[in-house]
Amino acid sequence: MKTDRILLDHGSGGKISHSLTLDIMLPVFDNPMLSKLNDGAILNIGGKKFAFSTDTYVVDPIFFPGGNIGELAIYGTVNDIAMCGGTPLYLSAGLVIEEGFPISDLKKIIKSMGAAAAKAGVKVVTGDTKVVPKGAADKIFINTSGIGPIPDDIDVGCEKAVPGDIIILSGTIADHGITVLTQREGMTFTSSVKSDTAPLNHMVEKIFSSSKNIHVLRDPTRGGVGTSLNEIAEKSNCGIKIYENKIPVKNEVKGICELLGFDPLYIANEGKLLAFVSPEDAGKVLSAVRKDEFGNEACIIGEVVPGHPGKVFLETGIGGTRMVDMLTGEQLPRIC
């Protein structure tokens, strides 16, 4: 993009973020583990495979219905490791705190990070705290990194989808993104929507014990399901077809999306996953996902199709067809 400054679009998780990674980061750090551009890196240490991932959390507001920045920071990294097929074990936590931040809020955040780590079954084993002058950061930013071993018989990745694969989605979409959005200043909605922030590693364990034919796991966070599916279609060089009627969206979330002109396919999730499974195992995997406490609304939303490499198609509610492109930039509310 022809701009000499970073725009908010560069952080949207869509095409523009992607170009930042490809143009600026990848040429410098280039190595085979990074260049896969998966949720985390897969490392080989002493003949054993490990998943290693990092993420930084800057969510505003820091407390929102259904969660807070601390819980999100734990689950986000846990999920990234789980999506690589890894069993998350150890996390680091780095905090950047703005001068003047209430200690009571910090306590609340740290406490919920502890509870989240316990729930996910991981330990925070190292950390760092920096304080910056007022205005140099917005309240609190948290980075977490994590590592976990990948069992020998597990081999998943965004490049491994093949025609025929069935696509399972673990529940309703767009809950997190819409919740955070409606809490922002200027948004005067009242609703009962809540973030879906949740650890997915236990769900992933259930998935792997139900089938060995899992090809792709992905948590559609920034950029939403639409962007994740595009990345998978592109890396696997295959076509994807999904069905609008089969994608679960809560009524209230749907309502807010319509009110703002947003497409829920591009809104962030923090406790959902997409699993690409061989058709013969789809039923088994679906019931395994549904057995998890965060997967009881799981459903099949589409399949990998022959031809159309790199493209994602959607059959609309009334039976038409349209393309689902990657998100371009930050979705801006449209009015007129």
Partner: peptide, 21 residues
């Protein structure tokens, strides 16, 4: 402004780029 105008390119800039400045 309503959101739509932010990215529209003018002759030398856009509102979005001005905001970044």
């Amino acid at each position: 402004t309503f959101g739509d105008l932010m990215r529209v390119p003018g002759t030398g800039s856009s509102l979005q780029k001005e905001r970044a400045k």
